[in-house]
Amino acid sequence: MKLTLKIWRQKNAADKGGFATYVADHVSKDMSFLEMLDVLNDQLTEKGEDPVHFDHDCREGICGMCSLYINGKPHGPQQTTTCQLHMRSFSDGETITIEPWRAKAFPVVKDLVVNRSAFDRIIQAGGYVSVNTGGVPDANEIPIPKTVADLAMDAAQCIGCGACVAACKNASAMLFTSAKVSQLALLPQGQVERKTRAEKMVAQMDAEGFGACTNTGACEAECPKGISITNIARMNREYFSAVASSDNM
């Protein structure tokens, strides 16, 4: 396969950046998208050009480090992570446009690499159960209905890649935030801090400059882990009932 790649290049956060066009020939259908970029980078290096920087690590769809906005979609045409996207999803002669995630809260670091530490700060605001190591009850002390545990697991599968933000026309982080709020609101262990958690995490999400949800459902459609927007509804519920009834002024 021979492909034309239109890739966003930006030296650093301060640089304005722009697109550069490369030709990738000898692309095999069995390559993953990132392997195709590896080959391009080796060619660029041999020519003495700076290789294209992009985030990636586990390359098995679970660490959430890879990103890339490919042909107008986060993680490209399939509902998967970019590292699990293979070149058989493209056809010979195609032009592929590759951009970084775009959001005020995800500033570009270099080329296709963005800073997603806003997500860490949202979790730090309350995405945990405040228990210290040791001194906890036996694991089987509180039975949890299987359906509840399964629902919590559905939400807990979020890999924090940020595709929801990238896909959302408002760059909203509600799917990410709601996945954690939901997981802990569903489980008995999360009840103690339930109200404060919802309030604090939403406040942090807003402080980071993410947009508001307009229920387009794009996040759910693009989420590589299939996190459902029912979680956003649950977060809304959690938040409204928390602000109405908590002691926090």
Partner: peptide, 23 residues
């Protein structure tokens, strides 16, 4: 919401993931 994405995408394929009216 506009300010949440100061630099917009050059290509975007919204029709593949959401309804036109919702956007």
């Amino acid at each position: 919401n506009k300010s949440a994405r100061p630099v917009s995408y050059s290509t975007s394929n919204g029709s593949s993931n959401s309804a036109w009216s919702s956007r």
